[in-house]
Every structure is written in C-alpha cells, then in structure tokens.
C-alpha cells in the first residue's frame, strides 16, 4: 500500500480522537469523520500497490457527528493495482441523533488480475439519510466480491454501477437489508457486461417489518460483444406485516446471443410449515420466527469470507432482528 495515500489509525489514541474499542484481529482502522480522514480532514483515497497481497483487512469507519454539517457530500476512491489483493470493511455510523443527509461518491477500480473483498455495513439512526453512489470498474481477470449489510437507517440508498471491462472480469454482489418502522432502503444495481467471458451474480435479500419500504432495481446489461457472459440475479423479500412494501424490479437487456443469464424475485411471508415444525419441537413462536428470519438472512451473510467478521455480522443481525440496536459485543458505540 502506498503510505502517502494511507493513513493508519495511530497506535496511541489521543483521548479526543475516535477509535474502535473492539477491533477485529488482523484489521487496521481508519476513521472518516464527517467526510474527512481523521487527522488530515482530506478526502479518502486508498491505493493498493501492484502486487500487494497483504492479509490485513482495512476497516474504514465513517462517522457522522453533531459537529459536522447537516448535509454533507463526500467523495472517496479505492484503487487496486495489478495482481493485488485487498480486503476492506466499510462502515457508516451516526453518533448523534441529529438529522443527517450524507451524499457519497465511492469509486472502486480493480486493475487486471486483482482480487478484492469488501463488506459494507450501514448502521445509522432513524433520522439519517444516506445516498451512496458506487462506481465500480473491474478489469481483465479481476474479481470483486461485495456484501452490503444495511442494518439500520432512516433512508438509505445504494446506487451501484459496475462495469466489467475486460475478459474474465467477475463481480459477486450481495446485499441484506433489514428495515422496520418507517425506514426506507433502496438498492439500484446496474451490471454492465462489456466484454466476453465475464461473470456476475447478484443476491439481494430483505426483511421488512412494520411500515417500512424497500426497493430493488437490478439491471443486467450485456453489450453486443460480450459473448459467453454469465450473469445471475436474485432478489428475495420477506414481508413481516401487511403494511410493509417492497418493489422488486429485475431488468435484463441482452444484446449478445451466446450468454447465460437468469433472474428471480420473490416477495413472501414466513413459511407456515417451517414455523409449525419449529414450534412442534417446543420453540416459542417468536423464537421460531426469529430463526426463520436468521435463516433467510444467512445466505447473504455466508458470503462474508472472514469467519470472524461473519460471526460478528450474524450476531449483529440477530440483535437487529430482535429489535435491539446493533452494535458489536462490548462496544460502547461512541467510538472514543
């Protein structure tokens, strides 16, 4: 990693600076406070050098505080050099109950033969609106896996544009959104297959309670030259109440004739047969329903490659589904 572009969280934390009290083993933390990197206030720009294959996970924790403006626009970029391997955890939190609007542009570019793993966790309060635009460019033989976990937030919108630019580029996009109350989540995916032999898959799952609203709109666009494309898309939603609403909109635009593409969408309720089976073994209805929801979410959580992170996210998801505010074990949430 290029040092200039990479500001490590200092090992000694001044009392007034943010830090994570329960960092995961093998991770480095970097804080972005109200849009600027902690320490320099500069926009975030991370470069992984050519051939860099560190096992370390870089965790970028974006925090909104009451000292920042109500409305904020920021840009950040992540670029991965040829043959590099990178692992990122991107978190966004709000640490004040003020109404926030955050507009973010995130550029992610993968040079040929790089391999990148990103887990994104969105955990904000009910008065927070967060609009993120992802522009992702994946070149020849490079592969990206991304997991979006939208656990909490007033109005969260992820606009994800992926360009597969070069043969054998691959992108595995996954998302889990859990909404209740009047929360709203929108995921807008545009997967562009521009070259032959590329692979993409999308799996987005949502659990909606109360009067929440979610939408998923996923486009697979296969360009005329992109023969031998494989592109798959699935969106499944679990509606726990009659008031919850979901809009699921798969779109396929295919201009090549030798491709494998599929999409599927379901919106449904908890399965009654499963529920009876669980209850017949002595599990109370509420716990049984929770197990069903956890099981539903698991397919997405299972895409997290770090076992430790997966365990944490499974436990955060459980807390969230139990209606508790999700935070890591022993975390005091105020990050300082």
């Amino acid at each position: 990693m290029t040092e200039n572009n990479y500001i490590y969280a200092p090992s000694e934390h001044p009392a007034d600076k943010f830090r994570c009290k329960v960092p995961m083993k093998g991770t480095r933390q970097l804080f972005v406070i109200d849009g600027g990197v902690q320490g320099t206030a500069a926009p975030l720009s991370i470069k992984f050098d050519e051939g860099n294959c560190s096992d370390e996970i870089l965790q970028v924790i974006g925090v909104r505080t009451s000292s920042g403006p109500k409305e904020l626009s920021s840009e950040s970029s992540f670029s991965f050099g040829q043959n590099s391997q990178g692992r990122l955890i991107l978190c966004s939190h709000t640490f004040a109950e003020d109404p926030f609007i955050t507009k973010e542009k995130i550029k992610i570019s993968l040079a040929p033969n790089s391999s990148v793993d990103i887990v994104l966790m969105q955990n904000e309060h009910n008065d927070a609106e967060h609009i993120s635009e992802f522009e992702i460019d994946i070149q020849r033989d490079a592969s990206l896996r991304m997991v979006f976990l939208t656990l909490h937030g007033g109005k969260i919108s992820n606009n994800i544009k992926v360009n597969l630019n070069g043969e054998n580029a691959s992108c595995d996009l996954n998302g889990l959104y859990i909404v209740d109350g009047k929360q709203q989540v929108r995921n807008l995916v545009s997967m562009n297959h521009k070259d032959p032999h590329c692979y993409s898959s999308q799996l987005f799952k949502g659990i909606l309670d109360d009067a929440s609203v979610a939408s998923f709109s996923g486009l697979i666009h296969v360009w005329p030259d992109a023969q031998k494309t494989q592109a798959y898309q699935e969106n499944h939603n679990l509606l726990l109440t009659k008031e919850a609403k979901v809009y699921s909109e798969p779109q396929l635009e295919i201009y090549a004739d030798d491709v494998k593409c599929s999409h599927g969408a379901t919106n449904g309720r908890l399965d009654e047969n499963e529920l009876f089976y669980l209850r017949s073994r002595g599990i109370p209805k509420k716990e049984a329903q929770l197990l069903q929801q956890q099981a539903f979410a698991y397919a997405v959580l299972d895409k997290i490659s770090s076992e430790e992170l997966k365990e944490r996210m499974v436990s955060l998801t459980e807390q969230r589904l139990r209606g508790e505010f999700s935070k890591c074990k022993n975390c005091c949430k105020n990050c300082c």
Partner: peptide, 21 residues
C-alpha cells in the same frame, strides 16, 4: 414429510429446542 429449513442448522435447531424444554 419433515420440513426442510435452509439456513437453520440441525445443531442450532435442537439446541434451541432442548434449552426451551
């Protein structure tokens, strides 16, 4: 016709049930 429940492991299922008992 025992029900299939993807995502709930047998061990988790039975531990929850046994502990409720």
């Amino acid at each position: 016709y025992p029900i299939e429940i993807p995502g709930v492991t047998n061990v988790n299922f039975m531990r929850t049930a046994v502990n409720e008992h």
